[in-house]
């Protein structure tokens, strides 16, 4: 995922202009084709997950999910996400601050480097860490004598997850911070606020929706990563199997129902992600509209007052 074009604002009143619409027939065919395509390609695969998961009834479903190995996989996955998120949020905030608020040479290069994990195959990411931390790798022997385990253990799984999700928060924040500019922060500083206060009270509130957006996307990917984690996991049942790996393993253990049960949890998380995302977008659109109205008012009336430091 190299970038996320923001979904467009909603298009109420589309196709109302006369003279530029298609004949009803063409319109019907296009709608039917699109709906059919999306149904087969998006809805059917999703529905299939739940149908297969519940194929043997609710009790089999609950039983699959309460198996100690499944529970361990769920715990591990949540733990990995819980460690990955703060790291990437900190990174995203720092990177966005440096990139959006300052001018320096090589900015384009830095942006490209931050994007890099999106375009690297997850398998290559896993391989890189094996070559660095594996026993036959660069740091492996040293780590081994000091009894530090990176790959085939939690740190390796977290590292690869941090890698594949690194750009999410930064990618969301850079444009938002660039758009808000630095005037508000400058005003706050002139009024005597410290750097940290300015950041917490001025910058963070102004980017909070973008930040949340980044966090949700980052979280979804952190929970669902398969390829990179598969290379560094070691597949120890109940220890280093994340949920996506458990899906594969259960499927191979003649236990398709359990595989689909764990998959259905992941699908639910995905759907929840989309729901929250839709809410956020709705919120952002509303805010945009309010700001436009405010700007219109401002043009009519006196200029905007000093920045309210209590905005948070």
């Amino acid at each position: 995922m190299a970038s996320h074009p923001h979904p467009p604002p909603s298009s109420h009143g589309a196709a109302r202009i006369s003279g530029t619409g298609e004949p009803v027939f063409v319109r019907g065919v296009l709608i039917a084709l699109s709906v059919a395509f999306l149904a087969v390609f998006l809805i059917l695969p999703l529905a299939n997950v739940f149908v297969q998961a519940l194929g043997k009834g609710w009790s089999a479903y609950a039983h699959s999910l309460s198996h100690p190995d499944s529970r361990a996989a769920i715990r591990l996955t949540l733990l990995v996400a819980a460690i990955t998120l703060p790291v990437n949020v900190t990174f995203g905030l720092a990177a966005a601050w440096a990139i959006a608020k300052f001018e320096f040479r090589g900015k384009a290069v830095l942006l490209t480097l931050i994007d890099l994990p999106f375009s690297v195959s997850p398998v290559v990411a896993g391989l890189m860490y094996v070559l660095v931390f594996g026993l036959q790798g660069v740091l492996g022997p040293w780590l081994d004598t000091h009894d530090i385990q990176i790959i085939f253990a939690l740190p390796g799984i977290v590292l690869t997850t941090v890698f594949v999700t690194l750009p999410f928060v930064a990618r969301e924040l850079v444009p938002v911070m660039q758009a808000t500019g630095a005037e508000q922060e400058q005003a706050a500083l002139t009024l005597g606020a410290s750097g940290w206060t300015t950041f917490w009270r001025v910058t963070l509130p102004s980017v909070k929706w973008g930040l949340l957006y980044g966090i949700i996307l980052c979280n979804a990917r952190a929970i669902g990563e398969f390829g990179a984690v598969s290379v560094v996991s070691g597949h120890i049942a109940g220890q280093t199997d994340t949920m996506p790996l458990a899906v594969e393993k259960l499927y191979q253990e003649f236990n398709a129902t359990a595989a689909f049960a764990v998959a259905s949890l992941l699908a639910l998380i995905a759907l929840a992600t989309l729901a929250i995302k839709a809410c956020l977008e709705w919120n952002m659109r509303r805010k945009d509209r309010r700001e436009r109205d405010a700007a219109a008012n401002a043009r009519r009336g006196p200029g905007p007052g000093p920045v309210a430091l209590t905005a948070a």
Partner: peptide, 11 residues
């Protein structure tokens, strides 16, 4: 974007 690739592959 949100669905884990393993789940996509499986289904």
């Amino acid at each position: 974007f949100a669905l884990p690739t393993a789940v996509a592959g499986l289904t």
